[in-house]
Amino acid sequence: MVAIASSAPDSLFEELWRLQQQVDELFGTWASPSGGIRSLPRGSFPAVNIGHTPERVDVFLFAPGIDPKTLDISIQENLLTVTGRRDIPAHEQATYYRQERFSGEFRRVIALPEDIDPDRVQARYQDGIVQISVERREAARPRQIEIH
Protein backbone atom coordinates (compact mmCIF):
# COMPACT_ATOMS: atom_id res chain seq x y z
CA MET A 1 0.00 0.00 0.00
CA VAL A 2 1.16 3.47 -0.80
CA ALA A 3 1.52 5.91 2.05
CA ILE A 4 -0.88 8.73 1.46
CA ALA A 5 -0.53 12.44 1.94
CA SER A 6 -3.40 13.85 3.94
CA SER A 7 -4.55 16.09 1.11
CA ALA A 8 -5.25 13.18 -1.24
CA PRO A 9 -8.68 12.11 0.03
CA ASP A 10 -9.93 15.69 -0.03
CA SER A 11 -8.90 16.25 -3.60
CA LEU A 12 -10.54 12.98 -4.58
CA PHE A 13 -13.85 13.91 -2.98
CA GLU A 14 -13.59 17.29 -4.60
CA GLU A 15 -12.94 15.66 -7.96
CA LEU A 16 -15.81 13.20 -7.47
CA TRP A 17 -18.14 16.02 -6.63
CA ARG A 18 -17.17 17.96 -9.75
CA LEU A 19 -17.60 14.88 -11.90
CA GLN A 20 -21.05 14.22 -10.45
CA GLN A 21 -22.00 17.86 -11.00
CA GLN A 22 -21.08 17.55 -14.66
CA VAL A 23 -23.16 14.40 -15.00
CA ASP A 24 -26.08 16.06 -13.24
CA GLU A 25 -25.84 19.06 -15.52
CA LEU A 26 -25.68 16.93 -18.65
CA PHE A 27 -28.45 14.49 -17.96
CA GLY A 28 -30.51 16.02 -15.22
CA THR A 29 -30.77 14.42 -11.82
CA TRP A 30 -32.83 11.47 -13.11
CA ALA A 31 -29.77 10.05 -14.84
CA SER A 32 -27.42 10.18 -11.88
CA PRO A 33 -25.34 8.57 -10.54
CA SER A 34 -23.21 8.37 -13.63
CA GLY A 35 -25.78 6.32 -15.52
CA GLY A 36 -23.76 3.08 -15.44
CA ILE A 37 -25.95 0.21 -16.56
CA ARG A 38 -25.07 -1.76 -13.42
CA SER A 39 -25.17 1.17 -11.02
CA LEU A 40 -27.73 1.00 -8.21
CA PRO A 41 -29.99 3.73 -6.92
CA ARG A 42 -28.41 6.15 -4.47
CA GLY A 43 -28.67 4.83 -0.95
CA SER A 44 -28.01 1.20 -1.89
CA PHE A 45 -25.73 -0.76 0.43
CA PRO A 46 -22.80 -0.68 0.21
CA ALA A 47 -22.07 2.72 -1.34
CA VAL A 48 -19.17 2.64 -3.82
CA ASN A 49 -16.47 5.14 -4.76
CA ILE A 50 -13.84 4.42 -7.39
CA GLY A 51 -10.57 6.25 -7.87
CA HIS A 52 -7.84 5.59 -10.41
CA THR A 53 -4.26 6.43 -11.35
CA PRO A 54 -2.27 5.31 -14.41
CA GLU A 55 -0.96 2.42 -12.28
CA ARG A 56 -4.07 1.12 -10.54
CA VAL A 57 -7.77 1.34 -9.81
CA ASP A 58 -9.07 1.53 -6.23
CA VAL A 59 -12.61 0.50 -5.39
CA PHE A 60 -14.00 1.52 -2.01
CA LEU A 61 -17.09 -0.15 -0.60
CA PHE A 62 -18.58 1.63 2.37
CA ALA A 63 -19.58 -1.47 4.33
CA PRO A 64 -19.36 -0.81 8.08
CA GLY A 65 -19.89 -3.53 10.63
CA ILE A 66 -19.47 -6.56 8.41
CA ASP A 67 -17.45 -9.67 9.05
CA PRO A 68 -14.87 -9.62 6.23
CA LYS A 69 -15.05 -13.42 6.15
CA THR A 70 -18.56 -13.19 4.70
CA LEU A 71 -17.24 -11.24 1.71
CA ASP A 72 -16.85 -12.87 -1.65
CA ILE A 73 -14.84 -10.82 -4.12
CA SER A 74 -14.30 -11.99 -7.68
CA ILE A 75 -13.09 -10.49 -10.96
CA GLN A 76 -13.90 -11.78 -14.39
CA GLU A 77 -12.33 -9.81 -17.23
CA ASN A 78 -12.97 -6.27 -15.99
CA LEU A 79 -16.12 -7.04 -14.02
CA LEU A 80 -15.77 -6.94 -10.25
CA THR A 81 -18.44 -8.71 -8.20
CA VAL A 82 -18.70 -8.33 -4.44
CA THR A 83 -21.22 -10.23 -2.36
CA GLY A 84 -21.59 -10.39 1.39
CA ARG A 85 -23.94 -9.95 4.25
CA ARG A 86 -24.42 -7.77 7.26
CA ASP A 87 -26.28 -9.14 10.22
CA ILE A 88 -27.70 -6.70 12.70
CA PRO A 89 -29.07 -8.47 15.75
CA ALA A 90 -32.60 -7.40 16.72
CA HIS A 91 -33.27 -6.66 20.38
CA GLU A 92 -36.72 -8.03 20.85
CA GLN A 93 -37.29 -6.59 24.30
CA ALA A 94 -36.43 -3.09 23.14
CA THR A 95 -38.59 -0.41 21.54
CA TYR A 96 -37.22 0.77 18.22
CA TYR A 97 -37.49 4.41 17.15
CA ARG A 98 -35.37 4.19 14.01
CA GLN A 99 -34.10 1.32 11.90
CA GLU A 100 -32.33 2.91 8.97
CA ARG A 101 -29.27 0.67 8.76
CA PHE A 102 -29.13 -2.00 6.09
CA SER A 103 -29.35 -5.60 7.24
CA GLY A 104 -29.10 -8.71 5.09
CA GLU A 105 -27.33 -9.85 1.95
CA PHE A 106 -25.85 -7.54 -0.64
CA ARG A 107 -24.31 -7.83 -4.08
CA ARG A 108 -22.66 -5.23 -6.24
CA VAL A 109 -21.27 -5.62 -9.74
CA ILE A 110 -18.83 -2.96 -10.86
CA ALA A 111 -17.40 -2.48 -14.34
CA LEU A 112 -13.72 -1.49 -14.09
CA PRO A 113 -11.60 0.04 -16.86
CA GLU A 114 -10.73 -2.48 -19.60
CA ASP A 115 -6.97 -2.37 -18.97
CA ILE A 116 -6.94 -3.80 -15.45
CA ASP A 117 -4.98 -6.93 -14.64
CA PRO A 118 -7.41 -9.35 -12.92
CA ASP A 119 -4.47 -11.37 -11.56
CA ARG A 120 -3.11 -8.52 -9.50
CA VAL A 121 -5.76 -7.65 -6.96
CA GLN A 122 -5.49 -6.83 -3.28
CA ALA A 123 -8.32 -6.36 -0.82
CA ARG A 124 -8.44 -5.20 2.75
CA TYR A 125 -10.97 -4.09 5.34
CA GLN A 126 -10.38 -1.12 7.61
CA ASP A 127 -12.69 1.20 9.57
CA GLY A 128 -15.69 -0.29 7.77
CA ILE A 129 -14.36 0.26 4.25
CA VAL A 130 -13.47 -2.56 1.87
CA GLN A 131 -10.66 -1.36 -0.39
CA ILE A 132 -9.99 -3.39 -3.52
CA SER A 133 -6.86 -2.31 -5.40
CA VAL A 134 -6.41 -3.62 -8.94
CA GLU A 135 -3.21 -3.02 -10.91
CA ARG A 136 -3.42 -1.89 -14.53
CA ARG A 137 -1.50 -3.63 -17.28
CA GLU A 138 1.93 -2.14 -18.01
CA ALA A 139 1.25 -1.68 -21.72
CA ALA A 140 -1.73 0.50 -21.02
CA ARG A 141 0.19 2.97 -18.89
CA PRO A 142 1.25 6.25 -20.46
CA ARG A 143 4.94 6.27 -21.34
CA GLN A 144 7.25 9.20 -21.44
CA ILE A 145 8.84 9.48 -24.89
CA GLU A 146 12.22 11.08 -24.88
CA ILE A 147 13.26 13.44 -27.65
CA HIS A 148 16.91 13.13 -28.68
Binding site: M1, A8, P9, R42, A47, N49, I50, R56, D58, D127
Partner: peptide, 18 residues
Protein backbone atom coordinates in the same frame (compact mmCIF):
# COMPACT_ATOMS: atom_id res chain seq x y z
CA UNK B 1 -13.70 9.60 6.56
CA UNK B 2 -10.34 8.93 4.99
CA UNK B 3 -9.68 6.90 1.87
CA UNK B 4 -6.25 5.39 1.32
CA UNK B 5 -5.32 6.68 -2.15
CA UNK B 6 -2.26 7.80 -4.08
CA UNK B 7 -1.89 11.55 -4.38
CA UNK B 8 -2.46 11.63 -8.14
CA UNK B 9 -5.72 9.62 -7.99
CA UNK B 10 -8.73 10.83 -9.93
CA UNK B 11 -12.37 9.91 -9.54
CA UNK B 12 -14.14 7.41 -11.76
CA UNK B 13 -17.39 7.05 -9.86
CA UNK B 14 -18.83 8.20 -6.55
CA UNK B 15 -21.90 7.34 -4.52
CA UNK B 16 -20.41 9.23 -1.58
CA UNK B 17 -19.60 12.85 -2.36
CA UNK B 18 -18.57 14.16 1.04
Amino acid sequence: ARLDLPENAEALYADVRS
